[in-house]
Design a protein around this nucleic acid. Structure first.
Length: 544
RNA sequence: GGCCUUGUGGUCAAGCGGUUAAGACGGCGCCCUCUCACGGCGCAAUCCCGGGUUCGAUUCCCGGCAAGGUCACCA
């Protein structure tokens, strides 16, 4: 068979040679040991925690080593393309502090552009042609129906499905048959002529998983689809070689196709990059757990966390604790350190699937937010509220001085200990609502109406805005005593049956009247912030 | 089903032949306390199973079992 003639017929025209491409995409000029990593999403517009998980790994490995991380868009499948998806990926990742050094819509060193695979059609064809010339690839005319029938037969016979060995009908087509099909205008794909034997297994060192065993590939995988666009496998080999990726970080679901990639790199004559396959984020689904799915788990999209108002650093800290098992300990010792100073290591990554734990994320969020100054918290909330908040919430920012007082109180700033009431922006905005709006609903009062009416009335009569916290509380105690409540907790605890209740109960009545809630920060301060008129109005409202 | 990967409390996990089997989250209890939050103290809860190897296995080997992944002209 004349492979050159066949190659010319299949992919006519002159293509640059391997040497030309090698010169065009030279090895990167980086210091020794610098890693080049990449994030290569398809432009579906859906970015989830799994992508962040990958992206942080890529970013850390690259930057810890003095290398670079770039963004490449795998848009070989038209069906997946969504308008604006690339910008969405970049902005979502930026929010969580992952910044690329180069890539699609980012720019950077143009040497390795373009970063959209659709725009790189020529290079894939050039190498497909080369493979055909070498007899390592061939045209396949099987239709979708042929393939389906084949799969069904294999399934029925309990054989491995796929296009391989004796089932690879088109791999041994005669020259005449090929040209007859071509002349008839039949559509075709280009397949790799695999030379592997899956019975033979090799040890393979994975940067994350450690040593794994990988069988040889025997599938004649499609490298060029009938529209002349490469499949992922083929594009991966060519792009990661010429974009000079040193470590390919991807999800562990790719391990299954590693044999294909190993054979492809070898056939192309490219050295194999190193690989690190990370575990996937799992979700509890009834009794079992499964990989996060785009379809079923929209709440795990990155957008969800932005809408909820999760603090970006908190999400990153959580990702890091999942990513590197020793991170948590390090962070405990260095609570104020730059996250990027953590000695991130691929081999410290977990080998098994990790269940996403919202409780843990929330705990981390509380801790992170509690470290903020009132001003920073206000800024954080404002940015969130202007995009996601209600018009009412947006008005909270009109009186900045008041807002700052509210935050100072709610965060326990200035006190001996910081409070940790805030987990997200949306929750925090809810939390401070009563400072800006009269309570719409009230938690249940635990005492009869006439009892609390008396208490409220007496409190109001004796209320003086100028009183400091001690005097104020002394008055609350007076009201308590006057109504059969113990003024001192110790007295109450010693003989609870002797009293209606304690100051705590009296305070609770006042608290609910003031805020609608039974649990809030310090009541006296709340009243100070609300102002005398508002305090009187709120209590009077309940009295009527 | 074939192949690959993984199996330590509810969750995330240290651990690499001898430990009272860390720690964190969550749960529960107590203390502090005008409530909550914070903080402090404490409790419950784990080495998938069966064989080996060994004086001794969570740790090493073999076999089960279970879970997850993957078997496209999708990535």
């Amino acid at each position: 068979m004349n492979y050159h003639a066949l190659a010319e017929r299949l992919l006519p025209g002159d293509y640059p040679t391997l040497e030309t491409y090698e010169a065009q995409y030279p090895p990167r000029n980086l210091p020794k040991g610098a890693e080049v990593t990449r994030l290569a999403p398809s432009p579906t517009g859906f970015i989830h925690l799994g992508n962040l998980f990958s992206a942080i790994t890529d970013e850390r490995i690259a930057h810890r080593s003095g290398g670079i991380v770039y963004l490449r868009i795998e848009d070989t499948d038209l069906k997946r393309k969504v308008e604006g998806a690339v910008e969405a990926v970049i902005s979502a990742l930026n929010y969580f502090d992952v910044k690329f050094d180069e890539g699609a819509e980012i720019g950077g060193d143009e040497t390795y552009a373009p970063w959209y695979q659709r725009r790189r059609a020529e290079i894939y064809r050039a190498f497909a042609k080369k493979l055909i010339e070498e007899g390592r690839a061939y045209p396949c005319f099987c239709t979708e129906d042929d393939l389906t029938a084949l799969r069904e037969e294999q399934t029925k016979n309990k054989e491995i499905t796929g296009y391989y060995g004796k089932y690879a009908k088109c791999r041994n087509l005669s020259e005449e048959e090929i040209y007859r099909n071509l002349d008839a205008g039949k559509p075709f794909v280009i397949r790799l002529r695999s030379m592997g034997n899956p019975e033979i297994k090799h040890k393979f060192h994975d940067e994350i998983k450690g040593d794994i065993t990988v069988p040889e590939n025997d599938q004649d995988v499609v490298i060029l689809k009938s529209d002349g666009i490469p499949t992922y496998h083929f594009a991966h080999a060519i792009d990661d070689h010429f974009m000079r990726t040193t470590v390919v970080i991807r999800g562990e679901d790719w391990i299954a196709s590693l044999p294909i990639h190993i054979e492809l790199f070898a056939a192309l004559g490219f050295p194999l990059p190193r690989y690190g396959h990370h575990c996937s984020l799992m979700k509890q689904d009834g009794e079992s757990r499964r990989k996060l799915s785009k379809r079923k788990d929209p709440e795990l999209s990155l957008e969800y966390y932005r809408k909820e108002g999760y603090y970006a650093r908190a999400v990153k800290v959580y990702m890091l604790t999942l990513l590197n098992s020793n991170f948590e300990e390090w962070y405990l010792k260095n609570p104020d350190a730059d996250l990027n100073d953590f000695p991130f290591k691929a081999e410290k990554m977990s080998k098994s699937g990790t269940l996403f734990d919202l409780d843990k994320l929330n705990d981390i969020s509380k801790n992170e937010l509690s470290k903020l100054s009132a001003q920073d918290m206000a800024t954080f909330l404002k940015v969130w509220a202007m995009e996601f908040g209600t018009p009412e919430q947006q008005r909270y920012f009109e009186d900045e001085e008041k807002l700052l007082r509210v935050l100072t109180l709610c965060m326990g700033i200035g006190g001996k200990k910081r409070r940790k009431d805030f987990t997200t922006a949306s929750q925090a905005m809810k939390f401070i609502e009563f400072f800006f709006e009269r309570p719409m609903t009230y938690e249940e009062f635990r005492f009869e109406k006439d009892v609390r009416t008396k208490i409220l009335k007496q409190f109001l009569e004796g209320y003086r805005y100028e009183d400091d916290a001690q005097v104020w509380f002394a008055r609350v105690k007076e009201v308590a005593s006057a109504n059969g409540f113990a003024a001192e907790m110790k007295e109450y605890k010693a003989a609870p049956e002797a009293y209606m209740g304690s100051v705590a109960d009296v305070a609770e009545i006042l608290r609910i009247a003031m805020t609608g809630k039974a649990n809030t920060p310090d009541l006296w301060t709340i009243m100070q912030i609300l102002g005398e008129e508002e305090v009187r109005t709120r209590i009077s409202a309940l009295l009527n």
